[in-house]
């Protein structure tokens, strides 16, 4: 589903060129759950942003579902992203001024779904995330775990093929963290491809495969034996 070929990203400041990614080639199959690990500043988030079509690579190729999208313009990337990719962030990134319901509804609005259809889909997702009773609350009235469940709900509401999670448990205690990981695993079992950036060995343990990045390059790739079995 995802294939990169010598993907490179360079950040330029006035006199320094930093290689955030250096010729990264990788592949993620449909239905896989892949964790990307590595120390701070190794390029994990940059890779995730490029995979998520939020950012353009400086070089190399990126095939999404067989289409080269690395050279896409912003408008094309937005079109491709819509409905296909869901995002989950460490800091939840909910809009404070919108209610739980409205936050989850957001992607559907940009997909131009009808109001009745939206209502059905949002209600279903909120039930599934077990926060239906909180629909009319604002993010700040919720606990961290609840907020992240809303964020996941928003990521999956449009039934995307791919979910990208950037340290989804980073701001949560272990109990809430576990709950989030269980949710992601469940989604993966239902067929959603998941790529997750994490610092936590524990969380990486939920993935089928772990890619270790260091200074913008893939250091190792190991298949998680236990999870591979399940696969």
């Amino acid at each position: 589903m995802i294939q990169t070929n010598k993907l490179t990203k360079i950040f330029r400041t006035e006199d320094v060129e930093t290689y955030a990614l250096n010729e990264v080639s990788m592949e993620v199959k449909r239905g896989e759950f892949v964790a990307i690990m590595g120390p701070s500043g190794c390029g994990k988030s940059t890779l995730l942003n490029i995979i998520g079509l939020l950012d353009n690579p400086s070089g190399g190729e990126y095939y999404f579902d067989g289409t080269e999208v690395g050279s896409y313009k912003e408008r094309q990337r937005t079109m491709m992203r819509k409905g296909n990719i869901g995002f989950v962030f460490q800091s939840f990134n909910l809009i404070d001024e919108l209610t739980v319901y409205e936050n989850v509804e957001l992607p559907l609005i940009y997909l131009k779904k009808k109001a009745s259809e939206r209502k059905e889909m949002v209600t279903a997702v909120l039930e599934r995330m077990k926060i239906g009773h909180r629909a009319k609350h604002f993010p700040q009235q919720l606990s961290g775990g609840q907020q992240q469940r809303v964020a996941i709900g928003r990521a999956v509401v449009a039934n995307p093929k791919l979910i990208l999670a950037d340290e989804p448990t980073g701001n949560l205690d272990s109990k809430n963290g576990l709950e989030v990981m269980n949710l992601l695993t469940e989604l993966n079992r239902e067929g959603t491809t998941i790529i997750m950036v994490t610092h936590s060995m524990h969380d990486a343990g939920f993935a089928h495969r772990v890619i270790n990045l260091f200074d913008g390059e893939i250091l190792t790739e190991n298949v998680n034996e236990k999870m591979a079995d399940i696969l």
Binding site: T78, R81, N93, I95, L106, P107, Y110, L111, R154
Partner: peptide, 8 residues
């Protein structure tokens, strides 16, 4: 956030 969620 809105752009990430598909806003043009």
């Amino acid at each position: 956030i809105r752009k990430v969620n598909g806003a043009k």
